[in-house]
Simulated assay, not measured.
Amino acid sequence: MTTERAQTCFFEKDPTCSLASRALAEGVGTCLLMLVAAGSGLSVHRLFPNSPVLALAVSAAGIAGSLAGLIVAFGSASGGHFNPLISGLQWLGGERKLRCALAYIAAQLVGAVLGVLLAHAVFGTPVHLAHPQVPSWSLVASELIASFGLLMVVFGCARGARKEVGPFAVGAWLFGAIIAMPSTSYANPAITCAALLANGSIGLNSTTAGLYLLAELAGALLAYPVFTVIYPQRHPEVASFKRRCRVTDRGER
């Protein structure tokens, strides 16, 4: 392993660890992230029922802070994605094998569902398909922009910053995007799917979730060529280690 590679954001420190253990890290991290996202929505509704601006800021701080902490905690084990868009674009860029990306995405989806169920169990509230309203196109466009921005920050850090920077850069972007974007910046298909079961401000109905999923995918696909142009080539030692990730990962054989 090269020192350069060990300092890279959003890639596991040791790709020879079993795929099961790395996927478990992604599942647990996503579960805890969704627990905070759903729990903060329920909590601020109780604490600040007449102050939506304050409620939004508090919720954004909780989600962004928890995500930064989770990336620090699990980044060395799995890369700390907790988001199918990140795992999928790493596969698209040849940085991760398809089997690994699919295992990560499956773990993220399961983890998010478990997280929302756990949040409602803690608060003693029922889960349900929430909010019958269909979103406006401005909300869908907002979700596309939020996803584009998130992926730019993630891959900008992964290709151009030290390992320690990534968690806090992503947390800072998410805090700002939740407040600035009218869709409140889900920017994560696992969270969006699990929000179908959520009460509170994070809850979505099936139509809204479907449109948001399309917008998130479009935002990610738009971000991919942009950050590829900005960072067209990695350090040769990093590229060599990435090839090792694809070839020697015994968990994917």
Rank of each mutant, 00 (worst) to 15 (best):
G94N: 06
A209R: 08
I202Y: 07
G27F: 01
A73F: 14
V153A: 05
I191C: 08
G93T: 01
A103R: 01
A37H: 03
A101G: 06
S147V: 08
G88I: 02
F11M: 10
V140I: 15
R46Q: 13
P236Q: 10
R162P: 09
G93M: 07
R162K: 14
H81S: 10
A121S: 09
W173I: 11
S201L: 04
E143L: 12
Y212Q: 14
G79Q: 14
M181T: 07
V134F: 05
A73G: 12
P236A: 10
L150S: 09
Y104C: 11
Y104L: 07
A25F: 10
I63T: 07
L114N: 01
G251K: 10
V110I: 15
A141F: 15
P84M: 03
A25M: 05
A198C: 13
P232R: 04
A25G: 05
A215G: 11
I202H: 02
A101H: 03
L102W: 00
L19C: 00
A68V: 12
V72W: 15
V127S: 14
R5Y: 12
W137P: 00
T184H: 15
P132R: 12
M152S: 05
I71F: 06
I230E: 04
F168E: 14
C245I: 02
T192G: 07
Y104N: 13
E164V: 15
